[in-house]
Amino acid sequence: MKRGTTLFLKIADILIGIPVLALCIFLVPEIGNVAAKLLPDFAYIKYLVSIVFYASAIPFYFALYQAFKLLRYIDKNKAFSELSVIALKKIKHCAITISILQVLVLPLFYLFADKDDAPGVIFVGLVVPFASMVITVFAAVLQRLLQEAIDIKSENDLTV
Score class of each variant (00 low, 15 high):
residue 1 M to F: 10
residue 1 M to Q: 10
residue 5 T to F: 11
residue 5 T to W: 11
residue 5 T to E: 07
residue 6 T to Y: 11
residue 7 L to K: 08
residue 8 F to V: 03
residue 9 L to F: 08
residue 11 I to H: 06
residue 12 A to N: 15
residue 13 D to K: 05
residue 13 D to E: 10
residue 15 L to G: 12
residue 15 L to R: 05
residue 16 I to R: 13
residue 16 I to V: 15
residue 17 G to I: 07
residue 19 P to K: 07
residue 19 P to L: 04
residue 20 V to R: 03
residue 22 A to K: 12
residue 25 I to Q: 09
residue 31 I to K: 07
residue 31 I to M: 12
residue 32 G to M: 02
residue 33 N to M: 11
residue 33 N to G: 08
residue 34 V to D: 09
residue 34 V to P: 07
residue 35 A to I: 07
residue 36 A to G: 01
residue 37 K to T: 04
residue 41 D to P: 06
residue 42 F to N: 12
residue 42 F to H: 09
residue 43 A to F: 13
residue 46 K to M: 00
residue 46 K to W: 00
residue 47 Y to K: 03
residue 48 L to F: 14
residue 48 L to E: 08
residue 51 I to Q: 06
residue 51 I to G: 14
residue 52 V to N: 07
residue 54 Y to Q: 08
residue 54 Y to C: 05
residue 55 A to F: 06
residue 57 A to I: 04
residue 59 P to W: 04
residue 60 F to M: 11
residue 62 F to H: 05
residue 64 L to V: 05
residue 65 Y to V: 13
residue 68 F to M: 02
residue 69 K to C: 07
residue 72 R to T: 05
residue 73 Y to A: 12
residue 77 N to F: 05
residue 78 K to Q: 13
residue 79 A to Y: 14
residue 80 F to K: 13
residue 80 F to P: 10
residue 81 S to Q: 02
residue 82 E to G: 12
residue 84 S to I: 00
residue 86 I to Q: 09
residue 88 L to R: 00
residue 88 L to W: 01
residue 88 L to I: 04
residue 91 I to P: 03
residue 92 K to L: 12
residue 92 K to I: 02
residue 93 H to A: 15
residue 94 C to R: 03
residue 94 C to G: 14
residue 95 A to D: 02
residue 96 I to V: 12
residue 97 T to F: 05
residue 99 S to P: 00
residue 99 S to Q: 10
residue 99 S to Y: 11
residue 100 I to E: 06
residue 101 L to Y: 01
residue 101 L to I: 04
residue 101 L to P: 00
residue 103 V to P: 05
residue 105 V to E: 00
residue 106 L to D: 10
residue 106 L to W: 05
residue 107 P to K: 00
residue 108 L to K: 03
residue 108 L to V: 04
residue 109 F to C: 11
residue 111 L to S: 05
residue 113 A to Y: 09
residue 113 A to L: 09
residue 114 D to N: 14
residue 114 D to Y: 12
residue 114 D to H: 04
residue 115 K to S: 00
residue 119 P to N: 09
residue 120 G to P: 06
residue 120 G to M: 06
residue 120 G to F: 10
residue 127 V to M: 07
residue 127 V to G: 01
residue 128 V to C: 08
residue 129 P to R: 02
residue 132 S to E: 00
residue 133 M to Q: 14
residue 133 M to D: 01
residue 135 I to M: 11
residue 135 I to F: 10
residue 135 I to T: 15
residue 136 T to V: 02
residue 136 T to S: 04
residue 137 V to L: 13
residue 138 F to I: 13
residue 138 F to G: 10
residue 139 A to H: 04
residue 141 V to T: 03
residue 141 V to H: 04
residue 142 L to W: 00
residue 146 L to Y: 10
residue 147 Q to P: 07
residue 148 E to Q: 14
residue 148 E to N: 09
residue 148 E to K: 06
residue 149 A to L: 14
residue 149 A to S: 09
residue 149 A to Y: 12
residue 152 I to M: 13
residue 153 K to D: 14
residue 153 K to Y: 01
residue 154 S to L: 14
residue 155 E to W: 02
residue 155 E to A: 15
residue 155 E to P: 04
residue 156 N to D: 06
residue 157 D to E: 14
residue 158 L to N: 02
residue 158 L to M: 11
residue 159 T to P: 00
residue 160 V to D: 11
